[in-house]
Design a protein around this nucleic acid. Structure first.
Lengths: 95, 95, 95, 95
DNA sequence: ACGCAACGCATCCGCC
DNA sequence: GGCGGATGCGTTGCGT
């Protein structure tokens, strides 16, 4: 009997699984809604891919984004031979 | 003027983006809820990884799942040398 | 001049990028080879999905795998009402 | 006996699996090499994230990339109220 | 603080 | 040509 655990634990497990599955259903529904909106947008003449990029972009912290872009640009410039001042190579936090 | 489009299109765009962002927020919230449940479960002594596998498993069609598992088992047996009748190599739909 | 860095850094950058791109090319080629093998297998009558699962399974540590599966099975049993002794709820490392 | 298949099939299966696993090993090795290069680069003072973005960017068709970026920019402008001519809403292939 | 592993997203390919 | 599934990438959170 020592290693056997009462059915209360099983009940708890059931509850957890039920709650998770409920939430997942809702999430699935919302994801379908998102897809729906993209389809609508597409039907109206918008480019889905660009739209997604726009949304993703807006979801990010603009500061960090810009910093990163600048860094990438710097690297690209360095590689392209354009010897445009590889300054501040080392990441500097904005402020 | 020919290539310029009226502001109504911009409005439509704004609407789409707003709807999508709204939905995404809700999804994020629900995902956090899911995480919360997993944490609770973990605190109660359950193994998170196993729980996730269980939930994932339950989300799948049991029929298809079983069929696939049987096939995999058959292949594994064949490889392990155990020459357990490699019958029905070709996928057969259950019924 | 203080913030400008010599071209040696640019050279290093070029080297890194070149090495990475070279490696990525090789990886791409190998991935295509893998796809090729799967196609061959499929043409011979094997089920691609099952094959992939088999390969994935073999790639994992059998010990950990089995332990996890047992745990999942235990949870499932508990949920299914089958009150098959929920013993050792808490993860026990094998040895 | 009708449903039993000769061991030749098992052999074929073994061959396929062996080939796949071999290829996967090589791929894994190369991926580790890539990681190694990133670590080297990081140790030299480069920002890994930016480096990855640079590599990803270079891997894409520059034409398509630029077009997409322009589209995104146009959308963003439209949303920002800046009523910068939403012309050519509909994707135009460059040439 | 770093490295690792799971999660979610974006891309690509095969199917319909 | 569109859709769904499968794969790979990038990100985030966790454990060390």
């Amino acid at each position: 009997m020592s290693e056997t655990i009462s059915g209360a634990v099983a009940d708890a497990l059931r509850q957890y699984v039920a709650r998770i599955e409920r939430l997942k259903e809702e999430i699935t529904a919302l994801n379908e809604d998102v897809s729906g909106v993209y389809k609508e947008a597409k039907a109206t003449g918008f480019d889905t891919k660009a739209l997604k990029m726009l949304v993703a972009e807006r979801a990010k912290d603009p500061r960090a984004l810009q910093e990163l872009n600048e860094l990438v640009e710097m690297y690209r410039a360095a590689i392209d031979g354009t010897n445009v001042a590889i300054a501040c190579m080392h990441t500097r936090t904005v402020a």
